[in-house]
Design a protein around this nucleic acid. Structure first.
Lengths: 208, 208
DNA sequence: ATTATCTATAGATCTATAGATAATGC
DNA sequence: ATTATCTATAGATCTATAGATAATGC
């Protein structure tokens, strides 16, 4: 655990920076703090990454990629639309469960620093398949609508519904914990229940 | 507009502080900046509010109150459950529309400063009727569940669904704008559509 | 007299860099 | 020789306060 099996300072700094940025965001994390967490001198952080901004970009870029990848990945190709969607929502939830600080980091930095929105924009348009994945989802949604199995709605709304329900839950966990004080042993159950509720609610919500 | 009809510096400072805190959060707003926005000297900010922290608490408290009030307010007493819920969700959405920076401020500060969670906690338990409002909603929800008009679910989930969908939409507006570049004249339509979608999705989502 | 406003400044950070020293690779 | 790490420090903020001056209320 505490051994850091010869990870090399450069990488260790990146890791600790990641942890701290995820926890408190860019503004509230100092290079002094990062250095202390990595067990080195503050100057070394700048030696490897030049500026705090560049270090942050490195972290942010990888996290944005992670966040998008799941949303866009299609696994169950041509299964039943509803089954496919159920899996997608669940996979997105699971990704966030593994990275619970992700929504806060992305939201916070996209909101407070317009420059980061450009990064997101590039990242979206870069993956050329992103667009095609999007179009494919749109297509299958429209097919269901014309079959009458889904009510009239746009892909944009569907995606927003998924991100809203999933991301906001993880955004609010620290608050829920603080206000209602969920016991550690019931935490897992609480999250599992919410996972099911989110999926059910979204799927039910698109019915005609 | 620019006249500040004899508003007195004390109040003007509070107003400008509110604007800035809503826009960028506590950490990224300096008392220097607040003073400049109010057109006075930085020392005056401290003269009236002593510390930046106290000034912030004043703003935060009023915003928390606002946010809770709508969620808890019951207007349509004993109407139809679904009609009542539809109104509630819409009213919450409308409040956020008037205060689009509210979700970000509250989320950001509750996440980065644990102390603020205590403030929220107190605020919730202070309004003694808060609990009763909550219980009343729970009661009518359970009635519907036993009638078979709503699927099995908890009040907590229902409330989380509403806040998730409403708050997250306003959280993401700057991002959506930045990425997709919504034109100013279509903005209103976009928001109106989302309002309808949110209501429909939540109401549909709780059906058995 | 009291209250509002300003100027000036101390003391805390924090980022970034310069320059010294230690570790490592041929 | 080159790369990694450290010490020290300049320069930018930023918060908070002390102390001077201007405005206002009796």
């Amino acid at each position: 655990m505490e051994v850091d099996t010869k990870k090399g300072m450069e990488e260790l700094i990146l890791e600790k920076a990641e942890e701290l940025f995820l926890e408190k965001g860019y503004a509230l994390t100092s290079t002094v703090e990062i250095a202390k967490a990595a067990g080195c001198n503050q100057a070394l952080v700048h030696y490897y990454y030049r500026t705090k901004e560049r270090l942050f970009q490195k972290v942010f870029l990888s996290k944005i990629g992670l966040f998008l990848s799941i949303l866009l990945k299609i696994d169950g190709q041509e299964e039943d639309f509803f089954m496919n969607l159920r899996k997608k929502i669940g996979a997105h939830f699971d990704l966030l469960m593994k990275n619970p600080g992700l929504p806060f980091l992305i939201l916070n930095e996209l909101t407070t620093n317009k420059r980061n929105i450009l990064i997101l924009k590039e990242e979206i348009s870069k993956g050329e398949n992103n667009r095609s994945v999007f179009l494919k989802l749109e297509e299958s949604l429209n097919k269901e609508i014309s079959k009458g199995t889904v009510r009239e709605m746009t892909v944009m709304d569907l995606i927003l519904n998924i991100i809203s329900m999933n991301a906001f839950f993880f955004l609010s966990i620290p608050i829920i914990k603080g206000v209602f004080g969920i016991e550690e042993n019931k935490k897992k159950e609480f999250i599992e229940n919410r996972r099911e509720e989110v999926i059910t609610s979204i799927l039910n919500g698109i019915r005609p």
